[in-house]
């Protein structure tokens, strides 16, 4: 991160570089720009949603160094050098991510506004490797509100996509930090 310029108040606009959906991006951000506003307003990546802006709904869930976080409650400036995956970065040339496909086939949404956050959260949850039962999934997906009430279908979609998602992402070793300073270590699926 470098200080690029300062405005009239002496507040610095800083330049950060992040690997966003696999592509290195260098951006100028104010210190108060949240990761969420950076995505939505500066980069026009509006797939990550703003439902509450206070970490109370999960619609802004993204994968930061592979771990699910609320993009609304963190500052962009704090993530220089980080790796960020948003809903826009999940599908590949081969098609949709299995979690995305499962959400469609199980009709795991209605209005679709919480959906990107649900999908990113579900992938993050699979990587955490702590959900062993339906009740575990329900509990561990409780950070993502769905006002349409599609929870049973969300559960069904996640159960269906879990094995293939696990094969893709691997499972984190306990103790790896969210900011990935010591690297996100994958263990064999």
């Amino acid at each position: 991160m470098t200080e690029a310029s300062a405005n009239a108040d002496g507040i610095a606009i800083c330049s950060i570089t992040i690997k966003l959906n696999g592509e290195p991006r260098t951006l100028e951000v104010y210190p108060w720009t949240t990761l969420l506003d950076m995505l939505r307003e500066q980069l026009d990546l509006t797939g990550t949603k703003k439902g509450c802006d206070h970490g109370q709904c999960g619609a802004c869930t993204v994968l930061l160094n592979g771990k699910r976080i609320n993009a609304c409650l963190t500052l962009a400036i704090m993530h220089d050098g980080a790796e960020l995956t948003t809903i826009e970065g999940l599908a590949s040339e081969d098609g949709l991510h299995p979690m995305q496909t499962a959400f469609v086939t199980h009709d795991a949404f209605q209005c679709g506004y919480c959906t990107p956050g649900q999908i990113c959260s579900a992938i993050g949850m699979v990587a955490e490797g702590r959900a062993q039962s339906a009740d575990d999934i329900r509990e561990q997906m409780s950070g993502n509100l769905c006002r349409c009430g599609a929870y049973p279908n969300i559960l069904a979609a996640i159960e269906a996509a879990m094995p293939e998602t696990r094969n893709r992402v691997g499972v984190f070793e306990a103790g790896a930090s969210a900011d990935g300073h010591d690297g996100v270590r994958e263990v064999k699926p």
């Binding site: 509006t46 995305q100 679709g112």
Partner: peptide, 19 residues
């Protein structure tokens, strides 16, 4: 049938009023 707007919603391509 699956929703016809499903793929847009699961990829973040569905745009809402503030987007």
């Amino acid at each position: 049938l699956d929703r016809v707007d499903g793929p847009k919603k699961v990829t973040g391509q569905a745009r809402y009023a503030a987007e």
